[in-house]
Amino acid sequence: MTRKKTLALVAAATGLLAVLATQNSALADTNEGSDSTLVMVGSDTSQDVMEGLSQVVVNGAGNPLLSNYKATPVGRTVTTRTANAANCTFTVARSSGEGVNALAASIAGTAFNGGGATTPVTSPNMTGCVDVARSSSATISPSPNPGAGNLTLIPFATDSVSFATTNVSGIQHRLTLAALKAYYTSNGTPGSAGSAGCRGAKPLLPASGSGTRNFFRTMLGITSDTIGATGGWGTCVRDTNAAGTPIQEHDGRFLTDSQQLVPFSVSQYIAQQSSQISDIRGRATLGSIDWTDTALAAKATSPVLLQTSFGQGTRQLYNVVQTSRLGDAKVSEAFVGGGSDVCQATATIQAYGLATYAQCGSTTLTN
């Protein structure tokens, strides 16, 4: 029996909500340059599932409601509106944080400077260029600041975050939360496992602005996002590779050393493993976090399949919109309430390794 079939049977037997789909999704942005759809940018954690959803979420006449622009490849230029191409051409947002910033700039009519390009293409006036920001974090700090309560985070699915190491690793594949935190708060020479204080590890992080980085920090109880700061990441941590390239989340190809570890989305791992999306895991294998036992008891559960009871490593994924637009016909039909098109597309959500969420479509969470 193949590993994929074994995993599928385990999921069915244990009632886990992850679905290993076999069909391949398209590998491009959807409904590009449309002047009538809702433009989405931001998190690469949810870029693929939103790509799948943008192909099935349509209005009563069968017309698409969503245009989805991926965060990867990082540094590319997109044009989100044909009628306003001069302003709506920019280097695409590469993370949750940049996606929220692009949405805020669209609301404020200010410039947006996307990241990840040697020479980013800057939009001088983003008015109407972005409608929705994908976010894998509930904590957002948009710049420019649209004011408290002016953005609403609408949850639609459940994900888990664990850590990944290389397939042959000097790091244990099962760690307590305390042990994982110790790696990420240790001080020594960055990237040098042999230096005093680094505990024989080379901990990596996605680049600043990543929703997964922000969630992982909160999960570990680290209060500052600055490497080397009091209450922040330890100086053993790096968020670039040896060449200085910012580490992109959920890309296992950044793991090149048996002493490295990095936070990784479980749903992304599942979707890549099942070939639902491009497989960029490289040498990465998922580790398991023991949420209850300090002695690494055998009951620690491996997160090869997404589990909705995955301790505090479970998170929701969000689509962020301007609060004043919740009553907009397209926004409402696509995202608002359990009966919205996105919330009803449970098969598509599960096909990307995610679990459904009981409060899908809730509009109670604002910035």
Rank of each mutant, 00 (worst) to 15 (best):
A196W: 04
A355G: 00
N214E: 15
T176G: 10
N125E: 14
V57D: 00
A12F: 12
A298R: 13
N167T: 14
M50C: 06
I171L: 08
T356D: 04
D131A: 06
G211I: 08
M50E: 02
R199W: 05
L204P: 04
L296C: 09
G128H: 14
P206M: 02
T77D: 15
W291R: 05
T364P: 03
G337S: 04
S46V: 08
V304A: 13
T166K: 14
T212G: 04
T72E: 12
P144I: 07
V320S: 06
I227L: 08
G97R: 02
A28N: 07
A8D: 15
S160Q: 12
G52Y: 03
G147M: 06
A148Q: 13
P124A: 15
F254P: 02
T22E: 13
A104N: 07
S135F: 03
A18P: 00
H250N: 15
A71G: 10
E249Q: 13
V304T: 12
N113W: 00
S267W: 02
L27C: 07
T256N: 11
V168W: 08
V161L: 01
L354C: 01
Q312R: 15
S135Q: 08
F163G: 02
K299L: 09
A26M: 04
T91M: 00
G234F: 06
C88V: 10
V266G: 00
I247T: 02
R253K: 14
L326P: 03
L365V: 12
L205G: 06
N101W: 09
G327T: 08
D341P: 01
T14W: 07
L305P: 00
K299Y: 12
S67I: 03
G188D: 10
A329I: 10
W291Y: 13
P155D: 14
L153K: 05
R81V: 05
G353F: 00
G252Y: 02
N113K: 15
P206I: 05
C88I: 12
A85M: 10
G75I: 02
A11F: 02
W291V: 00
D35L: 10
S258Y: 09
A201R: 04
G313F: 05
V331T: 13
T152D: 09
T240R: 08
V49G: 02
G99V: 05
N113H: 06
V130T: 11
A93I: 09
F310H: 00
G232S: 12
A83Q: 13
R174C: 09
T185D: 07
T223D: 12
K181A: 10
S340F: 11
N63D: 15
N68I: 00
G114D: 14
S67V: 04
A297T: 15
S36W: 03
S192N: 15
E249R: 06
S208H: 11
S210T: 10
R325E: 13
F90Q: 06
F335S: 03
G353M: 01
G252D: 03
A138C: 02
P64Q: 05
M1K: 10
V78S: 01
L261Y: 03
P203F: 02
T152E: 10
T301C: 01
S186P: 06
Y357R: 00
T348I: 09
A28F: 01
A133I: 07
E32I: 12
S224D: 15
T256V: 10
W291M: 01
C343P: 05
T294K: 13
D48S: 13
S362C: 08
T230G: 11
